[in-house]
């Protein structure tokens, strides 16, 4: 089992980090959670480790987000905006795009978002069905809807910004 897991780790870790990143939006946090998910897999030795990893990781990200929200509330009064360092245009642009995608993703229903991110992380329809409880035949439909909404929401976001800039 540990050897299988090591192999899964090699093939899946980057995808798991990516998956988690789109939930917590912090690379280091995402990596920590991914590590933690693998650590739990080592202990629990789940049957289908890959799918299991994503489900556990998703749960951890949810808990993490809740905790982060709590902390944010507590820190609001203490918070001081760090002077934004002059960044390269390209980096600024990438950051803007990233936050637009994030906003768009947040407009999806939790289920649609989950299925989309799982597919993007490399899980098969079968794996997604097993992990989300969806019927296998519903995965394609869910994905179709999720993709459309993501693209539309992103476009709408761009539109809004153009209008806002005048």
């Amino acid at each position: 089992m540990p050897e299988d897991l090591a192999e899964i780790y090699r093939s899946t870790f980057p995808a798991l980090v990516r998956f988690l990143y789109r939930k917590v939006w912090d690379v280091e946090r995402a990596e920590d959670l991914a590590q933690e998910a693998f650590a739990r897999a080592v202990v629990h030795k789940p049957e289908s480790a890959r799918g299991w990893l994503f489900v556990v990781a998703a749960n951890m990200a949810r808990d993490d987000a809740r905790r982060a929200a709590r902390e944010r509330r507590h820190l609001t009064l203490l918070k001081s905006d760090p002077a934004s360092a002059p960044a390269v245009d390209e980096a600024v642009h990438a950051e803007t795009e990233r936050s637009r995608v994030r906003t768009a993703l947040e407009q999806l229903t939790p289920r649609d978002r989950e299925v989309l991110l799982l597919w993007d992380a490399g899980l098969s329809y079968d794996e997604i069905a097993t992990q989300t409880g969806l019927a296998r035949g519903a995965v394609g439909t869910t994905l179709a809807r999720a993709r459309r909404r993501l693209v539309e929401a992103f476009a709408a976001g761009e539109q809004d910004e153009h209008i806002a800039r005048g």
Partner: peptide
């Protein structure tokens, strides 16, 4: 085209590429 566009957007929300840290099977124990 929609699938391609959705993948493209998701790719924008990709963390900076970093090497996966080495697998430590004992990390949980």
């Amino acid at each position: 085209a929609l699938i391609a566009r959705a993948s493209e957007l998701l790719a924008l929300a990709t963390p900076p590429a970093r090497d996966a840290p080495p697998f430590r099977p004992a990390m949980a124990q």
